[in-house]
Amino acid sequence: MSALATVHVVVPARNEERLIGRCLDALATSRALLLAERPTLAVRVTVVLDGCVDGTAAVVRRAPGVDAVHVTELSAGGARAAGVARARDLEPDLDRGRTWVACTDADSVVPAEWLVGQVLAAEQGAVCRVGAVHPELGPAERLLHLGWLARHSHAEGHPHVYGANLGFSLAAYEHVGGFAPLACGEDVDLVQRIRAAGLAVVSTGDDPVRTSARRSSRVRGGFADYLTALAVDLARAT
């Protein structure tokens, strides 16, 4: 792709008052590091407030330079799609071929080098970068931590896809039809379609994102359900 002009970060959030502050702080650090290296880039962060009834919106308002869009209880895929659409709303004449979208989640913490890694992938010819995540498991959950590591190799070229650590060019995203309005698995579905279109996807273990290991889930089949099932399987095996 041509040299990037815009990086647009999308963070869906539903009632994340407790965790979104640290997410936005980490993104601010990552944005500052990227701009120190690429000062001509426009870097925006949009939080999609999806039917929030707690104090999430107030936390977002206090975060400098963070944009917010309000939607009403969309699916996970619908909320992410609304965040991507916001990039076009903010800049109608946006150059799709020079725009990179980086996705994470409100309960996650990106490392400082995260956005730099996203941009480097684009500069090296990728139109999609699939990253790694590590659930935040405490010392008392050592068995679950080891079980996770055994099942989730994040070597280069790994097969896993996480919405909390995903990036793609806006042109590629639009080419394959964007996020489908799925309750979960919208990230996997999108990457599958990008790959099926023959576009360049890189999977990396660099710059892993820390994500909440909570077990309560708003949707069936999501990350929280996976961790719960994994914990049960491991307990049965011991």
Rank of each mutant, 00 (worst) to 15 (best):
D93K: 11
V71K: 09
S75F: 04
D95W: 03
D95Y: 04
G77N: 01
G83I: 03
D89V: 10
G65D: 09
R88I: 00
A76T: 13
R80C: 07
L94E: 12
S75W: 03
A79K: 00
V71R: 12
R96K: 13
A76I: 12
G78Y: 05
R86L: 12
G78Q: 01
D89S: 14
A87P: 07
V69D: 13
V71M: 05
E73C: 13
A76H: 14
D95C: 09
S75Q: 02
A87V: 11
V71G: 07
G83R: 01
D67Q: 06
V84Y: 10
L90S: 06
D89F: 06
R86I: 07
H70L: 12
A76L: 12
A68N: 01
A79E: 00
D93P: 13
D93N: 14
E73Y: 06
R96I: 13
R88Q: 00
A81T: 05
G65S: 13
D95N: 10
P92T: 07
G83D: 06
G78T: 00
A85D: 15
T72C: 14
L74H: 11
D93Y: 13
G77E: 06
R96Q: 14
G78F: 06
A85K: 11
D95L: 09
E73G: 14
P92G: 04
T72G: 15
R96T: 14
E91T: 06
L94V: 13
V71W: 09
V84S: 04
L90G: 05
E91S: 10
P92Q: 09
V69E: 11
E91Y: 00
V66T: 08
E91R: 04
H70Y: 13
E91W: 00
P92K: 08
G77V: 04
R80W: 03
A85H: 13
T72Y: 15
V69A: 10
G83M: 02
G77F: 06
V66A: 03
V71L: 02
A87Q: 08
R80I: 09
L74I: 02
G83A: 04
L90N: 02
A87Y: 07
R86V: 10
L94R: 10
A79H: 01
A82Q: 03
D89N: 11
A76P: 03
S75L: 00
E73D: 15
V66G: 04
A79G: 00
G83W: 10
L74E: 12
V69Y: 12
A85Y: 11
V66C: 08
G65C: 08
V71P: 08
A82W: 05
V66I: 10
V69F: 11
L74S: 09
G83H: 08
V66E: 02
P92L: 03
T72D: 15
A85R: 14
